[in-house]
Amino acid sequence: MKVRDMRGLVLPLLMVGAWEYASRQGAAGAYAFVPLAQVASAMAELLGSGELLINLWASLTRTCTGLGVGIVGGIGLGALMALCGPANRLIAPLFHALRQVPMLGWIPLIALWLGNGESAKLLIVSLAALYPMVLNTFESRRQVEGQHREAAQVLMLSRWQQLRLILLPAAVPGIAAGVLQALAFAWVTSVGSELFLSSGAGLGSLMMNAEAAARMEIIIVCVLCIGLSGYLMSWLCTLLSRRLLRWRPNR
């Protein structure tokens, strides 16, 4: 059993080995493929100076703020569209039209309007989180089965009670799925927006500066950091939603 588990490590180790080998093949190789020792020392340096943490923190706070705005706005807008027909008629065409433009495609336009500071980035991240929240909230309302609504009617629950006790809990799984998606979008967009608007702190800005200086080791540290943080955040989010949805059968 132990041997089996080790097989997964073979390929990554081979890749790392190949990387290290490439880094020793003259100047051209060392430019793109930096030796592993250099990556490690860059990591130590970035951690020691606090540079990594400052930039990570900046990206994380923007993600969380944008996610918060997106969740609140998205649930509100999605519920409005789901519960009120005329509102849906007015909002839906605009929403679905705007949704088609890739998130990062908005950046030039928003940069022209809001400049390339924090507010522009925050707006983009919030929008990125808003879309999946609206869609999932809207969809989950449709998924409340007619039979549940009938059962609520037979028990003579008032409209408000139906909303609070039936519609809302029934919508929670959909909303939780939306939050998970929104988190992933917000994180990617937060880092992505820093690549384009690279003023201020953030992992993306750090990478862009490293690219300009051809410092591959810093880029590698950043990429690792981005992947790991994204993974940890979605893991936390999954744990939270599983706790919230413990009434569901485990699939």
Partner: peptide
């Protein structure tokens, strides 16, 4: 009162 063929209990309660 009514009992349906499917129990129609609310799964989150």
């Amino acid at each position: 009162g009514i009992v349906f063929q499917d129990h129609r209990l609310f799964p989150w309660m």
